[in-house]
């Protein structure tokens, strides 16, 4: 994207989408009483941003999303917690996309699983009780399931909006 204005506008749209998805997720009651088990809907916006705009812009959207959703629906504690999971999973997704031959399904799955691993590690350090790794197998499975689901949503979105280069040109030339 050549123009700063267009870039700012697109990042705004994606951040807004991410925040909205975070709000929708906060409306879904917690079904499984395992800490850290959640749908990760907002990760859809981050995955799409990674494909359309690259790692830097995805990181900006991730930071804006976590801060805004945290201050609206959480507290400083949950923000710190989300930052750990959010940025570790983003880093893993960037590496998976850059160095692996994964499709969006694999990239998103790697993100979901690594998000849960990071959060359980932070939780274990916070409560200084290593035994909560007890939750890890369940969280691996939930990260796998939500990762594949977000991958499906991302795949379908990109099929409709156009593959990253096509979408990029369409936005730039308007």
């Amino acid at each position: 994207m050549q123009s700063i204005g267009k870039r700012a506008a697109m990042l705004g749209v994606f951040s807004g989408g991410a925040i909205l998805l975070g709000y929708v997720e906060s409306l879904i009651p917690v079904l499984f009483f395992v800490p850290g088990m959640k749908l990760g809907l907002a990760n859809l916006a981050v995955v799409l941003a990674l494909y359309y705009f690259g790692p830097g812009d995805a990181a900006v959207i991730q930071l804006v999303r976590i801060s805004v959703v945290g201050f609206l629906f959480g507290n400083l504690f949950s923000i710190a917690f989300s930052l750990a999971g959010g940025f570790f999973s983003l880093a893993v997704m960037c590496l998976a996309k850059r160095y692996g031959r994964f499709t969006v399904y694999g990239v998103s799955t790697a993100g979901g699983v690594s998000h849960n691993i990071a959060q359980i590690c932070v939780a274990a350090v916070l409560v200084e009780n290593v035994k909560i790794v007890y939750y890890l197998p369940v969280l691996l499975l939930s990260g796998l399931a939500t990762g594949l689901l977000i991958g499906l949503a991302g795949d379908e979105t990109m099929r409709r909006l156009g593959a990253p280069p096509k979408f990029y040109d369409a936005v730039s030339n308007q």
């Binding site: 031959r101 694999g106 799955t109």
Partner: peptide, 11 residues
């Protein structure tokens, strides 16, 4: 097929 070999290996 939507998932390639790398994806399946990860799963």
């Amino acid at each position: 097929r939507r998932l390639n070999r790398w994806d399946m290996a990860l799963v």
